[in-house]
């Protein structure tokens, strides 16, 4: 897919673990793993909003078009 998810980069920058982020966002660690590995086919705005809030970043910091 042409959209890359740089979630792990932002997580490393913010020094936050997967479990912690999953808990803050309100999704399961399994779903977060799907998102991190780029297997996800779509991301809800509500999920993106929570991720940006938890990582204090912009959607563009997480998603990249290649």
């Amino acid at each position: 897919m042409a959209i890359m998810v740089n979630l792990d980069v932002m997580m490393a920058k913010r020094k936050i673990s997967s479990n912690e982020l999953a808990e803050k966002v309100g999704i399961t660690p399994a779903n977060l793993s799907i998102l991190k590995t780029g297997k996800a086919k779509a991301v809800r705005f509500s999920t993106l909003d929570k991720i940006c809030e938890a990582l204090d970043c912009q959607p563009g910091d997480i998603l990249e078009h290649v």
Partner: peptide
């Protein structure tokens, strides 16, 4: 269904 399952 697959698309729905992989919508986070």
């Amino acid at each position: 269904k697959s698309e729905n399952d992989f919508t986070i």
